[in-house]
Design a protein around this nucleic acid. Structure first.
Lengths: 149, 149
DNA sequence: CGAGTTTCTCATCTGGATATGAGTATCTCG
DNA sequence: CGAGATACTCATATCCAGATGAGAAACTCG
């Protein structure tokens, strides 16, 4: 669902958002707190920093801080840095990508499912998650009869 | 998002549902039509058959057919056969699983996001997908301002 | 029964995600 | 400026989903 790497990144962002006004957090602090290997977390944080979501400073008292307010960082923005969607180029029916002009009959439905799954990542920010705030649009009940899990 | 293996399985189910009343489809037919490697698709179909969603018969004129109506097969039911959710045992904040009695403050929000992403898989059946029918609950617009993709 | 067809099974290969270790660059501060 | 602290980088190891190949088991039909 979400790669372990993206999961690490999300957790790191939550930690940084919690200390949004406070001192910088070191990579190894973040790694230990999130349960990620230290060197691996360093690489993850580096990638997030390159994307401009966090700042990094070296040397004593260095570490990482948010570069933009946590209210402006959607989950999707973090996750997309790591989870590329390779996907199957061919349409759900048929042997190639759907011609947009003549979509196969399951095309729109599949698109809707995909969009619906992406939606919570776009409508939820790090700040939302930290404060336990949930986008009401993202919560729609599932008929019990269909819950076969 | 969805593993390639689960994607193969979904496509196979769509094919079988399209010929729901017709003859059995051979593994290699299904493989070719879906773009999956033949031997690999055989393994996938075998797993779906073991789960009871499809029937398999060997020998001439053998192949696979749906074991239950496509209206009763949700996407989640197929996908769950392959996409296990290992996930990080620890809560999004904190160093272990959340105590249900005293959840961390992002616990409910994260649960909601997860549930919202799972919902389309539970509320959509193979038949829905095949006929381009979309659960209206699964389609909620995303504010343009949040669409940072 | 025998031959052909098809599913089923297993052992192995491969590539990418994950992880590790060691070393390099850059900063602060005395 | 020197030393310590920290981020950064790279080479390599590990693990697993995905893919492959070859063969065994089971069925149909003449």
């Amino acid at each position: 669902m979400v790669s372990l790497t993206a999961d690490y990144a999300l957790r790191a962002m939550l930690l940084l958002a919690r200390d949004e006004t406070d001192r910088a957090l070191r990579a190894d602090e973040i790694a230990d707190a999130t349960g990620a290997p230290r060197n691996y977390m360093a690489k993850v944080l580096n990638a997030v920093a390159k994307a401009g979501l966090i700042n990094s400073t070296r040397g004593p008292a260095g570490g990482f801080t948010l570069a933009i307010p946590s209210t402006e960082i959607t989950l999707g923005r973090v996750i997309d840095l790591f989870d590329t969607v390779p996907g199957n180029p061919r349409c759900m029916l048929g042997s190639g990508p759907c011609d947009p002009a003549r979509p196969c009959r399951s095309h729109d439905a599949w698109q809707a499912v995909t969009a619906a799954r992406r939606s919570p990542f776009l409508s939820t920010t790090i700040a939302d998650l930290l404060n336990g705030r949930v986008d009401p649009l993202a919560v729609h009940p599932v008929p019990e009869s269909l819950n076969v899990a």
